[in-house]
Simulated assay, not measured.
Amino acid sequence: MAGYLTTHVLDTARGCPAEGLKIALYKVSGNSHSKLVEMQTNTDGRTDSPILPMDHFKTGTYELIFFAGDYLRDTHQVSEDLLFLDQIPIRFGMSDPESHYHVPLLLSAHGYSTYRGS
């Protein structure tokens, strides 16, 4: 089985999945970023398909950008122009070509947490 990448975003302030949050995935090489895909979370806070499916999976360094500011404004949790959290970048490495990598995000207007999930 080939590797693949998924995510799950939960809105910890409202106690529900973060529906409609835009996510972009970049391949990182040194100081260069190459955008691979942009997706949006569904009603369960997940993307409808893997962010990086098996047929496109390669080991290396990647960065997920979570567009939290847009989501927080859309859900009326913030109204400021200058937000404490706007775009949340999470840079990580995937070294096993056979693994499922899962990078969840627990989000509120003033904090977030992530980990390697299963």
Rank of each mutant, 00 (worst) to 15 (best):
D48Q: 11
Y71N: 09
A68P: 00
T47H: 03
K58P: 00
T47P: 02
L72Y: 10
L64P: 03
Y62A: 05
D48C: 07
R46G: 01
T59K: 08
H56N: 14
L72E: 04
H56S: 13
R73Y: 06
R73A: 06
L64K: 12
T47V: 09
I65D: 13
R73W: 01
L52S: 02
M54W: 05
P50T: 01
T59N: 04
I65C: 10
I51L: 15
D55H: 15
H56M: 13
A68I: 04
D55K: 09
K58C: 08
D55P: 02
T47Q: 07
R73T: 05
F57E: 13
T59W: 03
F66P: 12
T59V: 12
R73N: 04
A68E: 06
F57T: 02
H56Q: 15
R46Y: 00
T61Y: 05
F67M: 15
T75P: 10
I65W: 13
F67E: 14
F57D: 08
T47R: 06
R46M: 11
Y62C: 11
F67D: 14
G69W: 04
P50N: 02
S49M: 11
D74P: 00
T75D: 07
K58W: 00
D70E: 15
T59C: 09
H76D: 15
Y62T: 00
K58L: 06
T47D: 02
L64R: 10
D74R: 14
I51M: 08
A68Q: 09
R73K: 13
L64C: 09
R73C: 04
T75V: 15
D55C: 11
D48E: 14
D70T: 15
L72N: 10
L52W: 00
Y71Q: 06
R46T: 03
G69Y: 10
M54R: 14
D70Y: 11
G60V: 01
D74E: 14
L52P: 05
G69L: 01
G69E: 12
Y71V: 06
T75I: 15
T59H: 04
T75K: 15
L72A: 11
R46V: 00
L72W: 10
T47W: 05
S49D: 07
M54Y: 02
I65F: 09
A68D: 10
T59G: 04
T61A: 07
G60M: 07
M54L: 07
L52M: 03
A68L: 09
H76F: 13
I65S: 08
F66V: 09
